[in-house]
């Protein structure tokens, strides 16, 4: 019989101890976590960034990743777009009884790989088990702390008319690949989530270009969502051009079949960048040499004061690009 997670694994007794020591520590262990104290203790100097995110994705293993990688990269990306170098993470698991131990191990292995890749340590955590039917296999929460070097903090820079809007590659891939997978559509290898850690892209880019005025990863709500947040928060009008937006062919096809606009579909390895016009070439050159930026494009510009986003369609008409008004697809991150 295959080993599965039971309620007793979360009861705080012997089985909990075994799960933590023999499984979790095996994959995520480090000198701070291995102390197994109520808090992880550490020193950091400087300006700190702190973020949290919960992951409830279904299915937990998907084309291009799994909930383990997603939960590490998701928090890494929230720190990275703010110019913070990710250092430490907390991880909370809520497991529905019945998850197989092998599935849990695959997730841990994936988290171990992702955290080593990004140079972060998981220094505190928690595991709870809920009754069957009260969860969906596994939910993961991660929080992360990073440190911001002085020059990388873009927050004080004013977004103005003429600034350009850049995206580092094809949009909509995470959301649409998930949807196709849930539909059970048989797809080729190229159809996968764009899940990737952005720290290796954003941090060197921010130290290279001090004319970068904004960065955000367009997850739920997609690129259209982020642009609308910018327009409202900074009181600017934004215009993007449909023809300049990088979209892979399979995304176009899937979006037509499913009736979902890629501009609203979630991404997990993309960043929307606003940069002053004079530095755009420098950004584009950097992106062209980076694995996660090769397909990068300038997609539009800041038009002046306002609070709306406009899209110039490929037939030359212009229309409002509203923020998403309802859930396209629940449980994608």
């Amino acid at each position: 019989m295959e080993d599965i997670i039971l309620l007793s694994h979360g009861s705080g007794g012997e089985q909990t101890r075994k799960l933590i020591e023999e499984e979790i520590l095996k994959y995520l262990g480090n000198e701070i976590l291995e102390e197994l104290l109520d808090s992880g203790i550490f020193n950091i100097e400087g300006r700190l960034a702190f973020t949290t995110d919960s992951f409830v994705i279904s299915p937990i293993f998907f084309n291009g990743g799994d909930i383990g990688k997603l939960s590490i990269y998701g928090t890494i990306n929230d720190l990275s777009v703010m110019g913070a170098r990710p250092l430490y993470l907390s991880v909370g698991f809520i497991i529905e009884e019945g998850l197989t131990l092998n599935e849990f191990r695959r997730i841990l292995q994936s988290m171990s790989f992702a955290s080593r890749e990004c140079g972060v340590k998981v220094i505190t955590g928690d595991t709870k088990v809920v009754e069957r039917g009260k969860g969906d296999k596994i939910f993961v929460n991660t929080s992360g702390i990073g440190v911001i070097e002085r020059d990388l903090d873009w927050r004080g820079r004013k977004i103005e008319e003429g600034d350009l809007i850049i995206i580092n590659g094809g949009i909509g891939e995470h959301g649409l690949s998930l949807m196709l997978q849930r539909l059970g559509v048989k797809v080729g290898e190229e159809v996968k989530s764009d899940l990737a850690p952005l720290n290796s892209l954003t941090l060197p880019l921010l130290s290279l270009c001090h004319g970068i005025k904004f960065m955000r990863d367009p997850t739920r709500g997609g690129v259209a969502g982020v642009l609308n947040e910018i327009a409202r928060k900074y009181n600017v009008e934004i215009e993007i051009e449909e023809e300049k937006i990088p979209i892979k062919d399979w995304v176009k096809y899937a979006s037509e079949v499913l009736g979902i606009d890629p501009l609203y579909s979630a991404n997990e390895g993309k960043v929307v960048i606003i940069v002053e016009r004079g530095e755009a070439d420098k950004v584009m050159e950097f992106l062209s040499k980076h694995e996660l930026g090769k397909e990068g494009r300038i997609i539009g510009e800041v038009k002046g004061k306002g609070n709306r986003v406009y899209l110039k369609t490929r037939i030359g008409t212009k229309r409002i690009l509203d923020p998403l008004k309802k859930d396209l697809l629940p449980r994608i991150c």
Binding site: T313, I315, G316, R319
Partner: peptide, 15 residues
């Protein structure tokens, strides 16, 4: 409905 959606999406009424 798809015509409705596409006509609006491309601003066809405006041109």
């Amino acid at each position: 409905g798809t015509h409705t959606h596409e006509i609006f999406r491309y601003g066809i009424r405006d041109i």
